[in-house]
Design a protein around this nucleic acid. Structure first.
Lengths: 125, 125
DNA sequence: TCCTTTTATATGTTATATACATATAGATGA
DNA sequence: TCATCTATATGTATATAACATATAAAAGGA
């Protein structure tokens, strides 16, 4: 993954049109499947089509800490199997409920974008 | 529409998950269909499922001015049929091209969100 | 042993975007 | 004349994302 000091990759400039706070429901979904820690979650965001090089690692850690403060997840330190200790996160009941409401929001968003795209394509056709 | 001083409607608190700068492609799409002015565009955003009470009118005018500065649209003052003068906007070639690239971006976003939603629903099923 | 890389977490600062509030003014009609 | 509708615009605060950097344990090679 190379986020270390020696890595000089530049994250590509990511274009507009991001979904605000989208990594939040993604993290909650991953945690609804199994407990995990920041670094692993960062890698697994890739499964959602989020280029990990596009993703600011700092943001992931900040979201996790915030979600814990809000009671959506809980964490505890855990010795690393190989490597340094990790903060292991587990989703709570509130977290699951919040994920459900996020899903409704996202479905509404998709429907709005699709309405716009349909109108665009109708004009072209 | 009641945006006047005497209107005490409060815009409902709109939840997270907005698509960043989404009104920009919506405005460009509307302008690709016909020239229009800010106030009319504001009302027509409703057709995209955007609650006009959720939409800050000031944002619409700011986006129009910015897009003009960027050469995506051009404007000229026009006497109002009834009511005050309007700034009438027309889309440019650059604006049409930009709309096309926005559409690609939005299609990519939809596919990412759908991937996430599919995974969520698979877990529930 | 020293140095580099990988794994892992965290925060400071700046830039951008949105939300909220308000100012201005011409036209219309009671 | 006074309220309302139409119409455009900007000031400011807050939220979000982007960019940069700090820290440190463990693993492995020279």
């Amino acid at each position: 993954m190379c986020h270390g000091k020696s890595c000089h990759h530049r994250r590509p400039r990511c274009p507009q049109g991001k979904i605000e706070r989208f990594i939040e429901p993604c993290l909650l979904l991953l945690l609804s499947e199994q407990t995990s820690h920041g670094y692993e979650l960062l890698e697994n965001l890739e499964h959602f089509g989020i280029d990990p090089r596009c993703q600011d690692p700092g943001q992931v850690y900040r979201y996790l800490r915030r979600m814990e403060k809000e009671g959506l997840v809980v964490s505890e330190w855990e010795p690393g199997e190989s490597g340094p200790a990790r903060r292991s996160y587990r989703i709570t009941g509130d977290g699951l409920a919040f994920l459900n409401s996020w899903v409704k929001t996202l479905e509404a968003r998709v429907s709005i974008i699709n309405k716009m795209l349909a109108r665009y394509h109708k004009n072209q056709g």
